[in-house]
Simulated assay, not measured.
Amino acid sequence: MKTLLNVIWFVFGGFVLALGYFLAGIVCCLLVVTIPWGIAAFRIGTYALWPFGRTVVDRHERPGVATELGNIIWLLVAGIWIAIGHVATAIAMAATIVGIPLAVANIKLIPVSLFPLGKRIVPSKSLLPTYSH
């Protein structure tokens, strides 16, 4: 099911979203000082290509001052605008019953687009507890 949702997502918005994140990543890496944001943009871009079956988790127990400051700068410069784009796209996708899972995936992208530093993207299965005998 997640493969089918990922293909539909890719065709109806994921590819364009990912291109936007990749373009932002290239610009940030060219400016050298903003390389951490560029790396984060590439990471989010790959997540935006295939969001179903993956989730975002915190990278560290407690983020450092540099991570928090970087996230605040990102929020003010780009994060708010990206989040507004995700909300607008989610509303458009939710207009149809078929688009509701896609709208949910768009909403799922908002937290990482607002505060990308200190996050990592992992398969959803890895969050399940493992038991060994």
Rank of each mutant, 00 (worst) to 15 (best):
A18S: 15
V33K: 12
I39W: 12
I107E: 02
I35V: 14
L4C: 05
G20T: 00
L19Q: 13
I39L: 15
G53H: 01
R62I: 10
L127P: 00
N71M: 08
P51Q: 01
H133Y: 11
K125C: 05
P123S: 08
L102V: 02
L30C: 14
F15I: 02
A41P: 09
A105Q: 07
A105M: 06
D58T: 04
N6T: 03
A24D: 09
R54C: 07
Y47K: 01
A88T: 10
G13H: 08
G64L: 06
E68V: 03
F12C: 14
L69E: 04
P116F: 02
V98G: 08
L117H: 05
V7I: 15
T89E: 10
W50A: 09
P51K: 01
T89A: 15
I121C: 04
G53N: 02
P51S: 03
H86M: 09
P111L: 08
P36W: 05
G13Y: 05
L76G: 04
C29S: 11
V11Y: 11
G25W: 11
P36K: 03
L75Q: 06
V27P: 01
L69R: 10
I110R: 08
H60S: 13
A92W: 12
V11S: 06
L127I: 15
L31V: 02
P116E: 06
G70L: 01
K125H: 10
F15Y: 13
W74Y: 02
I82F: 11
A92H: 04
K2C: 03
V77H: 10
P123Y: 09
I8G: 07
I80A: 07
E68W: 11
G53W: 12
P129D: 06
G118N: 02
C29N: 13
R120L: 09
I84W: 10
A103N: 09
L109V: 00
T46M: 14
P36M: 01
I100L: 13
P36C: 07
A105Y: 08
E61P: 06
L17S: 11
P101S: 03
P101D: 04
K119E: 03
W81Y: 11
I82E: 09
G53Y: 08
L117A: 04
P116D: 04
V7Y: 08
N106R: 07
T46H: 12
L109P: 08
V27K: 05
I121K: 00
L109R: 04
G118E: 03
F115N: 02
H133S: 14
N71C: 07
L69K: 06
L19C: 14
A66D: 03
Y131D: 02
I80W: 15
L128T: 01
G14S: 07
K125E: 14
A41F: 05
Y47W: 14
G53C: 03
I91A: 15
A83R: 02
G64R: 04
I73G: 13
L69T: 12
I97Y: 10
F115V: 07
S126Y: 01
L109H: 12
H60I: 04
A90N: 10
T3C: 03
P116I: 00
V77A: 14
E68G: 10
P101Q: 06
L31D: 02
I39Q: 06
A103H: 08
G118K: 00
L128D: 10
L69N: 01
P116Y: 04
V57A: 07
T130R: 15
